[in-house]
Computed example of a mutant assay.
Amino acid sequence: MRAAQIAGLVALPPFAALAEAWPTQQVSAPSGQALILHEWLNEQNPWSGESQIIIRLLAPTIGAAGVDDTALRADMDWACDRWGRTIAQAASATTGQIVIEMMAAPTPRGTPTPEINRFYETYSLAGDACIWELF
């Protein structure tokens, strides 16, 4: 869901809670990396059948020299804690996973683009906590 589309949904429950919680402009992750909302999707996992929330963030410096894997992982944990839980709780009580995708440039979901750096992490929810799952 594009940032512009969120503005139209935030007035509709249960998405009203997302108005202040979701970024519509650039924000700084704990590492200082700039993140911009690209979209979020509620999909069905094709293998498990569970509902999953996909949060797609633009991270223009991802994969560049100087951005280490530890900082990237911490930024993804932070994104899940900050937005993943809110989206999952508002979208579906049966969400099984939250997938955080950070990409250097916009790219269609599911389309191979080897020239664009993309990183993924998956999380499950345990109460109010995002629990990292091996992707």
Score class of each variant (00 low, 15 high):
Met1Lys: 06
Ala3Ser: 14
Ala3Trp: 00
Ala3Phe: 00
Ala3Gln: 08
Gln5Gly: 15
Ile6Cys: 15
Ala7Arg: 12
Leu9Arg: 12
Ala11Gly: 15
Ala19His: 10
Trp22Ile: 14
Thr24Glu: 10
Gln25Leu: 07
Val27Gly: 03
Pro30His: 06
Gly32Asp: 07
His38Ser: 10
Glu39Met: 03
Trp40His: 12
Leu41Ile: 03
Asn42Gly: 12
Glu43Ser: 08
Gln44Cys: 04
Gln44Trp: 04
Asn45Tyr: 03
Leu58Val: 07
Ala59Cys: 10
Pro60Tyr: 01
Thr61Leu: 05
Gly66Cys: 03
Val67Thr: 12
Asp68Glu: 10
Asp69Pro: 08
Asp69Leu: 11
Leu72His: 04
Asp77Ala: 12
Asp77Gly: 09
Ala79Gln: 08
Arg82Asn: 12
Arg82Asp: 08
Gly84Trp: 04
Arg85Gln: 13
Ile87Gly: 05
Ala88Trp: 00
Gln89Met: 10
Ser92Asp: 15
Ile98Asp: 06
Val99Ala: 11
Glu101Tyr: 07
Ala104Pro: 00
Ala104Lys: 09
Ala105Gln: 15
Ala105Phe: 04
Pro106His: 05
Thr107Ile: 13
Thr107Cys: 08
Arg109Pro: 01
Glu115Val: 01
Arg118Pro: 00
Phe119His: 12
Tyr120Asp: 09
Tyr123Ala: 06
Leu125Ser: 10
Gly127Trp: 01
Cys130Arg: 07
Ile131Phe: 01
